[in-house]
Design a protein around this nucleic acid. Sequence first.
DNA 1: CTGAATCCGCGGGGATACTG
DNA 2: CAGTATCCCCGCGGATTCAG
Lengths: 127, 127
Amino acid sequence: MVTKHQLDGLPEDADLRRADSLAREIFSDVANKWALLIIEALGEQTLRFSELRDEVDGISHKMLTQNLRMLERNGLVDRQVHPTVPPRVEYTLTEPGRGLRATVDAMCGWTHQYLGHIEDARRTFDS
Amino acid sequence: MVTKHQLDGLPEDADLRRADSLAREIFSDVANKWALLIIEALGEQTLRFSELRDEVDGISHKMLTQNLRMLERNGLVDRQVHPTVPPRVEYTLTEPGRGLRATVDAMCGWTHQYLGHIEDARRTFDS
DNA sequence: CTGAATCCGCGGGGATACTG
DNA sequence: CAGTATCCCCGCGGATTCAG
């Protein structure tokens, strides 16, 4: 007879695979246009919901809340609610969030660095 | 009467806005799960279509071709066709592609660095 | 102002079959 | 093996409405 452990590998292996699937999950959450644009928009400032919507252009009300919830859940943004009327809610990057922002910055830098290359490549390809 | 230039701003401004919209377009192309996973999988190696499909787990035939076309169009991957039978097609990162890869690496590093933080944040949030 | 909920259309994306 | 084309469905995501 074959035990579950023999089929699945040692516990440490199982942990590794669990970590990997978690990493993948986080990656899937974060590696999407809107999430990254929100991170980038937040930068060092703390912004209100409506300011954020103005900042990230083209984003809909729904996508903004949805992504903000996701980012909050993962502990990348801090959500500060001021119990006033009308309500005032401010979003700020947490330390992990700022860490991610650094990589997004790099990506933006990359984009601008290769704008020319890419534009040329496209023209060539499209003919 | 108002000229087009007066409405749109000076030519230099127009150029800037064009560059921005292009940058945004590129960002939207590239800032998606599959594209980034492909970039990461390619790394320094050159891989065949089928190897790539095995490497990037969960990706479908269709998504793989679709994203590869897009990456090729933007000049991020080089597509080498060997006219043999059966055909053999190899993909390699170009220099701009490797540049992007560096930032994706950073993002993966970030993911693993904060795995614990995030897992905790999720548990807290989900209760 | 922020946010949840509902409705709904369109397109992302999977499965399959077919070419070279 | 690599790539394209077709079908089809589910869910993303926009618009709108209601609540606090």
